[in-house]
């Protein structure tokens, strides 16, 4: 069965403080597809992700989510498009002054008209799913980096998004926690079947968990295809990038 287009990025350009960060990005992501965006630090991966969810507006170009432009959307239309997204920020972006429980309950309290008992049931179920049972009354400052990301993932999951965006979900984590986060992403994907975009530096670790890879270099996509096709490409940057990733793995 042919899958429909979920996200279409059309020729977007962005200049920040005089520096051309994105120079004509084109990308089509199908429903239920998992795409990793990789590239050197500072090449605009996070900027691209922020454009997808409408946190930044491109200087030129358009981004369509289910055929609707998020670039030109404002007010309720923008809200309704954003409700399709879950966004796992690099640092988790948990609210410091709230406990883990209140952080996860926050979107439910604000977006759904549910009774407190129903909220409690959903929150505890999601915290159990991410392995944070018993930690609900801790504050974000009392959690480790991995636990913070798990709590943030639980917060994203409670509204059951159609599209999940992961901004470097395993950066700064030890190998065991990294694997547990990947397994968690895999489990939640299998349970919800959302469309997924992951920004990662973990080459080739991330390849086992995605359908396609987009390589970003100097504001352009230089490769977009299946992970196994990466080795066949003639692009010198992709070769070098893949080579260094594999070499790093070899050293480990």
């Amino acid at each position: 069965m042919e899958r429909r287009v979920k996200i279409e990025i059309r020729d977007i350009y962005k200049t920040l403080k005089g520096q051309k960060v994105l120079r004509g990005i084109n990308l089509t992501i199908l429903e239920g597809e998992r795409v990793a965006i990789v590239g050197k630090s500072g090449t605009g991966k996070s900027v691209l992700l922020k454009h997808v969810v409408g946190l930044m507006k491109p200087d030129k170009g358009d981004i369509l989510v289910d055929g609707e432009s998020i670039v030109s959307a404002v007010g309720k239309r923008l809200e309704s498009i954003r409700e399709k997204f879950g966004y796992l920020f690099q640092g988790g972006a948990l609210f410091d002054s709230y406990t883990v429980y209140d952080n996860v309950a926050f979107p439910l309290r604000e977006k759904k008209k549910l009774k407190e008992e129903e909220i409690k049931e959903i929150v505890l179920k999601n915290l159990e799913l991410v392995g944070l049972k018993g930690m609900e009354w801790k504050y974000p400052a009392e959690l480790s980096g991995g636990q913070r990301k798990r709590a943030a993932l639980a917060r994203c999951m409670v509204l059951e998004p159609e599209i999940m965006l992961f901004d470097e979900p395993t950066t700064g984590l030890d190998p065991i926690t990294t694997i547990s986060i990947y397994n968690l992403m895999e489990e939640t994907y299998n349970a919800k079947k959302f469309t997924e975009i992951v920004i990662s530096h973990d080459i080739p670790g991330i390849f086992a968990f995605v359908d396609k890879v987009a390589v970003l270099n100097e504001g352009r996509i230089v490769f977009f295809g299946k992970p196994e096709d990466m080795e066949k490409t003639e692009d010198p940057f992709v070769k070098e990038f893949l080579g260094s990733g594999l070499a790093l793995r070899g050293c480990k």
Binding site: V53, L55, E83, F85, Q90, G91, A93
Partner: peptide, 13 residues
């Protein structure tokens, strides 16, 4: 700077 405000926006709040 810790993207908590962005998180609010992504939640459509």
């Amino acid at each position: 700077i810790t993207e908590q405000i962005d998180a609010l926006e992504v939640m459509a709040l």
